[in-house]
Design a protein around this nucleic acid. Structure first.
Length: 598
RNA sequence: GCGCCUGUAGCUCAAUCGGAUAGAGCAACAGCCUUCUAAGCUGUAGGUCACUGGUUCGAUUCCAGUCAGGCGCACCA
């Protein structure tokens, strides 16, 4: 809040200066990116600093230091600022008055106000994440996408956006067929010794899903007679000749059980979706006209391609038929080649379904669509962006699509990578990791790095309850604050219902000032997370805040100061509880608990 | 071959969409518990920001090229 306040004041001063110079221009015109405010890393450069005089030097044709001195004259008149210094090539180093800092801290203590200010123009956002195929339990890679997507959603919501979250269930296509066959194979295997020949009939290319969950589902089907009809069971036992009559049932049951497991893992991980969207719904024919949503979508694009003058040019891909297939001209947007929607054999591609899915998204009228994908899908981004252009053009919408790619997770134990092969079934599931290290550490550690960097997830570190482990470091700071307030109560210290700046006036130490400045920055950190679509600035910030508080706590006897009496005790308690509040709030955005004691 | 991500201290990573002397945490070394939680704190040491050019008042940041690692390049999903 201090930064936006200062930005405004400097902007005013610049306008004032321009007016005096007889210029018709405004600060906004000369500084399209706004007045830059920096947080000096080192002491001695003021509380906040701005290089704005350097930025203005070019357009105004004046020396940066001359501009800085002019701005200094105006800024130093403000009672909120105790000192302005022109330094280096033309920096403005600003030091705030203590009264003003106390006022800011008082705002942070006011539980009626959110410590995060809302964005000026809230958007309607749909975020799709996880969307793991229902062919097996969530693994550690999915977990990272889940933690990221969920925290971004929480952050955007806190910033005042209207956020809906969605999970796309890829339950149509070959991999579901393979799952059904794998389950069927396991089910047969439980009842008889299958010949190699029979196995090959069930799984012609030999590969299958082999995790223990497949056997579990097969066992359940075997032990619960009501899952299959007598007819289905009879045909299934007879072999693959009538597979079309029973494989669908195996597929349904397997998908249902796996999705149940996925939902259970997600809830345990602190994640609930507003909606699950099933790919099957896109393929199902509408009883009214016999057409599926995909048919309708392709029909619309096809009609648009014929009738619209812009289709096929100006970066708006159109639809065309060639070599017996149906294509979208994605090469218009720099794709290596055009992409197939309906194959020569008449079957639809995954891409076609995904376009229809995004058409359904657009129909809901959001401003921004966020898709969170694994990094291995990056080749798909251009294609999807191309389809969005076409959809926007034909729908007359301006929906924006942002894709966040989540890089790989390397799971380490004893410093060595843990193998994760889905085929052999020995991969580590999210659930295993949660059993071993818990939800809090898992979520926090997933979010300590930019999603664009691959992440080493050290199981031993995650488990360790020591200072190496940032999540304990941060949570411990919160527990310390809670304990201080409890101790104060035990000692009969009465904490006021509502704090006022007068309560805070004893806070004059350098470390106290620094803590207030750091607390004040929280607002900006969260808003940056939102605009950059990154979560790790928040985990970094919380670690820094916790560290600064631990140091403060160590060096200052909060409940029994050397001197200063009750007013100082109260003031320090106020500062501590502000720290507690911000840590609690920040952890909640990460989906991590803030314990009262540890 | 083409595309995307990454290259910063011994290790894992930051660096506020071009700014001041590039910062943390581990690990190493030297210290601090009669106290509101030592799950903590203090100090020392550690760097050719992969390399080479370019853009400008200024580059770890932007551009081009080179090298290295990861991932992806289907009428699969």
């Amino acid at each position: 809040m201090l930064d936006s306040w200062l930005e405004q004041k400097i902007s005013d001063s610049v306008n004032d200066l321009l007016k005096e110079k007889g210029s018709a221009q405004s600060s906004r015109e000369l500084l399209p990116k706004g007045v830059r405010i920096e947080f000096p890393k080192k002491n001695g450069f003021g509380d906040l600093a701005s290089p704005v005089a350097m930025h203005l030097a070019g357009p105004l044709k004046m020396a940066p230091r001359t501009i800085a001195v002019e701005l200094e004259k105006r800024l130093s008149l403000l009672k909120e600022i105790s000192r302005v210094e022109v330094a280096g090539p033309g920096y403005l180093n600003i030091t705030f008055s203590l009264d003003f800092l106390h006022e800011c801290l008082n705002n942070l203590l006011d539980t009626a106000r959110s410590p995060v200010s809302p964005v000026s123009s809230p958007k309607k956002i749909l975020i799709e994440y996880v969307s793991a195929n229902p062919t097996g339990p969530l693994h550690v890679g999915h977990g990272r996408g889940a933690a990221y997507g969920n925290s971004i959603a929480r952050i955007l919501k806190t910033l005042g956006h209207e956020v809906t979250s969605e999970y796309y269930i890829n339950n149509a296509g070959n991999q579901m067929d393979l799952l059904a066959r794998s389950t069927y194979l396991a089910w047969r295997g439980l009842q008889e010794n299958l010949s190699e020949e029979e196995r090959l009939k069930i799984l012609p290319d030999g590969s299958s899903y082999q995790g223990s969950y497949v056997t579990d589902i097969a066992k359940e089907i075997l032990e619960n007679p009501s899952l299959l009809s007598d007819e289905e069971r009879r045909l299934a036992l007879a072999g693959m000749e009538h597979s079309s009559r029973f494989l669908g049932r195996f597929s349904e049951i397997a998908e249902d059980r796996i999705m149940q497991g996925i939902r259970r893992d997600l809830i345990r991980f602190g994640i609930e979706f507003d909606r699950y969207f099933s790919e099957k719904n896109l393929h199902a024919p509408d009883p009214a006209d016999g057409k599926s949503l995909i048919d309708k979508c392709l029909g619309e694009i096809s009609e648009f391609s014929r009738s619209s003058k812009t289709a096929g040019e100006e970066g708006i891909p159109d639809l065309f038929e060639e070599e017996g297939a149906l294509w979208l001209r994605t090469s218009l947007l720099g794709d290596d080649k055009d992409r197939v929607l309906r194959k020569g054999d008449g079957n639809l591609t995954y891409y076609a379904a995904d376009i229809a899915y995004h058409r359904e998204k657009i129909a809901q009228g959001h401003d921004l669509y966020i898709d969170v994908w694994g990094a291995d899908h990056h080749g798909y981004i251009l294609r999807m962006q191309a389809a969005m252009k076409t959809l926007n053009a034909l729908k007359g919408t301006r929906a924006e699509l942002k894709v966040a790619l989540i890089q790989l997770v390397n799971l380490l134990r004893d410093g060595k990578p843990v193998g994760m092969s889905k085929r052999s079934g020995d991969f580590v599931t999210l659930s295993d990791v949660l059993d071993e290290v818990g939800v809090d550490a898992t979520r926090f550690l997933y979010l300590t790095r930019s999603h664009e960097s691959s992440l080493d997830f050290d199981l031993d570190l995650a488990k360790s309850k020591s200072m190496d482990n940032p999540v304990y470091y941060v949570q411990y700071a919160h527990a310390r604050v809670a304990n201080l307030l409890k101790q104060a109560e035990i000692r009969g210290i009465k904490v006021p219902e509502k704090w006022t700046p007068a309560h805070l006036s004893p806070l004059v130490g350098d470390d106290e000032k620094a803590l207030i400045l750091l607390l004040d920055r929280f607002d900006l950190v969260v808003s940056e997370c939102g605009s950059m679509m990154e979560v790790h600035p928040l985990t970094d910030y919380l670690t820094e805040l916790a560290g600064q508080f631990h140091r403060y706590y160590f060096h200052n006897r909060i409940l029994s100061p050397e001197s200063g009496g009750e007013p100082l005790i109260l003031a320090r308690l106020a500062l501590s509880s502000a720290v507690g509040r911000i840590i609690r709030f920040g952890l909640s955005l990460l989906g991590v608990s803030a314990p009262e004691s540890m």
